[in-house]
């Protein structure tokens, strides 16, 4: 009798349980990605389509053309801005959530999750109604003579920042909330007992111990921003382009699949680097 059969819980069961998921991932994710990776190294000619010849032209074009490089930096900067916004707004919210108990926590939790309960398109149209030149915000401000001319909130970075910040905030809040809840409450009492005031407790105990949650929240928000498509397309329109809009444009409008694939892969690698770096940051803290 083979050994894996006599000790099913040791070697067979985990694979059997992982199997379906693994198969799905392999077929529907790793497979297409490999195909896409291959295409990104192919050529393209208008009218002919994909030319099956290995080359680095697509990557060269992306990294050396100032237009595309500008979009790369613009996208990364947007990611950093949305992340910073979510962190600044999210930490106090997570702090309040982690302290709340019972019904108060349930209500707060629901409110924080609200943005995720609406479809992206509907939510984005909602923001357009609010942010437009004749939108609710400008209309109200003009009416009360708080501003002379409408603020530019749509078709630029500001609008995308606001709309993406709103939908990605829950990821930041929930990550930090989990980390804060993991802190043993007696540590706060111990710190107070040792003579520390609130500010010292916050900067020496609360903040460092919630760092794993801050890091994972930042990774989630940053990758969420980079891969967002509907919101930047609808709110920024043609004026402010990000990588996902360029990928769509290249692949769907211009049918230049190789170039689109190359941009997509650049984005994937950027996210991967960030992910590994943040993982190492939290791992080192844990093993230190």
């Amino acid at each position: 009798m083979p050994s894996w059969f006599s000790k099913p819980h040791r070697s067979f069961a985990p694979w059997a349980l992982l199997g379906p998921n693994l198969l799905l991932l392999l077929l529907c994710m790793a497979g297409p990605l490999l195909l896409l990776a291959r295409i990104s190294f192919m050529g393209y000619e208008a009218g002919h389509g994909i030319i099956p010849a290995w080359q680095l032209a697509n990557y060269k074009k992306f990294f050396f053309d100032p237009f595309y490089r500008g979009i790369l930096w613009g996208t990364l900067l947007l990611g950093a801005e949305v992340t910073a916004l979510c962190l600044v707004l999210g930490f106090p919210l997570a702090y309040a959530l982690s302290r709340a108990r019972g019904l108060k926590r349930a209500v707060l939790f629901f409110c924080i999750l609200m943005p995720l309960l609406t479809s992206t398109v509907v939510r984005t149209f909602g923001w357009m109604i609010l942010l437009g030149n004749n939108g609710f915000i400008n209309h109200t401000l003009l009416r009360f003579h708080l501003i002379a001319a409408p603020l530019r909130l749509m078709y630029n970075v500001t609008g995308v920042l606001i709309a993406l910040g709103e939908v990605l905030l829950p990821f930041m809040v929930l990550s930090i909330d989990t980390a804060l809840l993991n802190i043993n409450p007696s540590l706060y009492e111990a710190a107070r007992n040792l003579g520390a005031r609130d500010t010292r407790i916050f900067f020496r105990i609360t903040l460092p111990l919630s760092l794993p949650g801050i890091v994972s929240g930042c990774v989630l928000v940053f990758t969420g921003t980079l891969s967002a498509f509907v919101t930047p397309t609808l709110i920024a329109g043609a004026r402010f382009k990000v990588m996902s809009t360029i990928i769509y444009q290249q692949a769907m409008a211009l049918l230049d699949w190789p170039f689109g694939a190359a941009i997509a892969f650049t984005m994937l690698i950027a996210i991967l680097i960030l992910f590994v770096a943040s993982l190492r940051l939290t791992e080192r803290r844990r093993s230190a």
Binding site: N184, S186, L187, E189, A190, A191, R192, N193, L194, G195, A196, R197, R204, I205
Partner: peptide
């Protein structure tokens, strides 16, 4: 307040940072 009492407390779970 607790932080001004100069009373040392050893916790059941030690509460080391």
């Amino acid at each position: 307040p607790a932080h001004r009492r100069n009373v040392g407390l050893v916790f059941q779970n030690y509460a080391l940072f």
